[in-house]
């Protein structure tokens, strides 16, 4: 199977600050990958590097087997919908489609026109007067009609209302199904990621905290509740993600490759949102208020 994204100790530094560090990932093609993490965790940086918009300061990266900024051929393979979905305010919707047609060798003009019509955009309207949701739809149309193999979206629906967000995700998934697109998108809305993604990458503090197939992540993570005890005494192969204690009880969220048989624990499954939130909290902060979310 070909690789969608392959990075080795990838890093990006701005002056003294590392925006992304030691990022090593292997994501197979054909996936819809969700990148989650708090603001400033390095999501945009990683996506911009993958889209060839930004040069890394360390490590290596391969996207669909090629180097991101290697030339027009690689740019044609990867679509990119940038954060806040920028558009030329003075140009019309039709102008933007023309821009896409002029600048992309594999442009699908019919698909672009159909999409614009279906989402109800007026081709003669200037994009400066479009709503955030409409602009996002235009950006998605440009990204899809380019006919890339991979579409990268940086927080595409962060600033739009729930209805527009749903419509956007519908359009995105439809395109993914129709053209067998791989998708790499960042979001801080775990519910969206849960709905559309089958591969998850959690970035915290410019480091990758966890990455993997969503189903595998869900089946390998467990919530354990039982009498209070020290998490250091757990058997090998069980990695604590988060801990919280009350006077008598200990609640653990852990990752284990094999089933848990210890009868002292009550084992329950973990939803994706709780899983993500557990990884977003600092791992050593047992008992801190930040872990309230786990109860």
């Amino acid at each position: 199977m070909t690789t969608l994204l392959r990075t080795r100790e990838l890093g990006k530094r701005y002056r003294r600050r590392w925006a992304l560090r030691d990022c090593t990932l292997d994501i197979p093609a054909g996936r819809i990958v969700g990148l989650v993490g708090p603001n400033g965790a390095g999501k945009s940086t990683l996506l911009n590097i993958a889209a060839g918009q930004l040069a890394p300061s360390a490590g290596s990266i391969e996207v669909l087997g090629g180097h991101p900024a290697s030339g027009p051929a690689q740019l044609a393979k990867v679509g990119f919908v940038a954060q806040d979905t920028p558009a030329y305010a003075a140009l019309t919707v039709a102008d933007h489609l023309r821009l896409g047609a002029r600048l992309n060798p594999r442009w699908d003009a019919a698909a672009a026109r159909n999409r614009i019509e279906r989402v109800g955009l007026d081709p003669a309207q200037r994009t400066g007067t479009l709503s955030g949701g409409q602009r996002a739809q235009l950006a998605l149309t440009l990204g899809v009609a380019k006919r890339p193999e991979l579409l990268i979206l940086d927080e595409p629906v962060a600033a739009v209302d729930p209805l527009a967000r749903r419509e956007f995700l519908q359009g995105l998934m439809e395109a993914a199904a129709e053209y067998e697109l791989s998708v790499l998108l960042s979001s801080h809305l775990v519910t969206d990621v849960e709905r559309v993604c089958d591969y998850l990458v959690v970035l915290v503090d410019s480091h990758v905290r966890v990455a993997g197939d969503v189903d595998e992540l869900l089946s390998s993570h467990h919530r354990l509740t039982g009498p209070r005890r020290d998490p250091g005494t757990l058997p090998a192969g069980q990695h604590v993600v988060s801990v919280s204690h009350t006077e008598r009880q200990t609640t653990l969220l852990l990752r284990a490759e094999s089933p848990i048989h210890d009868p002292a624990w009550t084992v329950s499954r973990v939803g994706l949102e709780d899983l993500v939130l557990a990884y977003l909290s600092p791992p050593t902060a047992a008992g801190r208020p930040a872990l309230e979310v786990l109860r």
Binding site: G71, P72, Q83, D84, P86, A87, L103, K146
Partner: peptide, 14 residues
């Protein structure tokens, strides 16, 4: 300033 460079740089043109 308006971020449109990110729109045009993501087309198939260096």
């Amino acid at each position: 300033e308006t971020g449109t460079h990110r729109l045009v740089w993501s087309q198939s043109i260096t």
